[in-house]
Simulated assay, not measured.
Amino acid sequence: MSVNLTIPTQQYDPAEIMGALYGPGILGLKGAFTREFAKELGEDIAVLYEEALKRPGGAVGRGPKRHYVEIHPEDIRGFVELATHPWVKAVCETVLGPDYKIVEIGFDVPNPGAENQPWHRDFPAPEDTVKGRRLNSLAFNLTTVDVEPDMGPFEIAPGTQWDDASAFEHEMFPPKEFYSRYEERAEQKMPKMGDISVRSALTIHRGTANRSDKARPVLVLGVDAPGANNHERHDLQVTKAFYEKLPDDLKSRLLCRIVDELEVIVQGHTIEGLMMGEA
């Protein structure tokens, strides 16, 4: 795979990174990868999605006409380039510390006909965040298409990663009487192929209705600080042959099982409040 990363020469500013993730809860880098990189990623996801839909437990519904599929790192051609991108590394080291671990890779697909999701977090806030006011995980998103307003853009309510969830259902789903707070803050994101973003999955967000005739696939890379337990929701695995070819620095970043042959993943990270009818 030819990548040709677009990498600014200046160092990434730790203050800007911390300010964004601890403030709004989201940060992006335009043109991090070439459009060709995103196109090839989209081709790989299309094949994996078709295969996942054919097997029991291969994809989990995230609402009508939406699915999430967890995959293996070696299922896509650009995993190493993504995981070792200087901006990705800088963000992880700045927010999560030098011993961060990659614990998840998968993709979301909001298809034509997908409806607005309820406002939500991806999981309950951990004690590190509730009591320690510290973020111990991040989610990177990489679109495979140019997102347009009618394609069900991702919508986020900046700053809400710190909201008290004591009244939330499952500590994830705020009651509808809270929605006005999120709608007042809401920002829709419309990245282009090659752009990448990172967010706290605790920041209140939702996928919006896809009124177009096009799907909006997006790759997800989940990263934890030491002591976080998000790996328990996932099953990251790589083959010995793949692992041996990885850069040494990346080997130490993977919290995974090393296997002789890849095992089929039965999707485990279900989000009950998003199972809104047939996906």
Rank of each mutant, 00 (worst) to 15 (best):
K214H: 15
G222C: 07
W162M: 00
A186T: 03
M172P: 02
H170E: 15
A228H: 00
D146P: 08
T143A: 14
A186R: 14
K214V: 11
A201H: 12
H205N: 12
D195S: 02
E183N: 06
F154D: 08
F173D: 03
Y179G: 00
V145M: 10
L202F: 14
Y179C: 00
P174I: 09
P174T: 04
G227N: 04
G227W: 08
D213S: 13
R199M: 14
K192E: 05
G227A: 07
D213P: 06
V198Y: 01
P158T: 05
G152H: 08
E155W: 08
E169L: 12
F168D: 04
F154V: 01
E169Q: 15
P226D: 03
A167R: 09
I196Y: 02
S166Y: 02
E171I: 02
E148A: 10
R206W: 12
I156S: 08
H170W: 10
A225R: 07
D195W: 05
A228S: 06
V218Q: 01
I156F: 11
K189M: 10
H234Q: 06
E171K: 04
S180Q: 05
D163L: 13
K189R: 09
N230W: 01
L142K: 09
G159M: 14
H170Y: 14
R216E: 07
K214E: 13
T144F: 11
R199E: 11
A157Q: 04
W162K: 00
S212C: 02
A201M: 11
H231Q: 05
Q188V: 13
R185T: 06
I196K: 02
V198W: 03
D213H: 13
A201F: 02
Q161K: 07
F178S: 05
T208D: 14
P191M: 08
V218T: 03
G159H: 09
T143R: 04
K214L: 14
I156C: 13
H205Q: 06
E184P: 02
K192N: 12
L142S: 12
V223D: 01
R216L: 09
E187T: 15
G227P: 06
K192T: 07
H170A: 15
G194C: 04
E187N: 01
E171G: 03
V223F: 00
L142E: 01
E148H: 11
V198H: 03
M190P: 07
N229A: 03
T203W: 02
P153M: 08
M172F: 08
T208S: 15
W162V: 00
S166V: 14
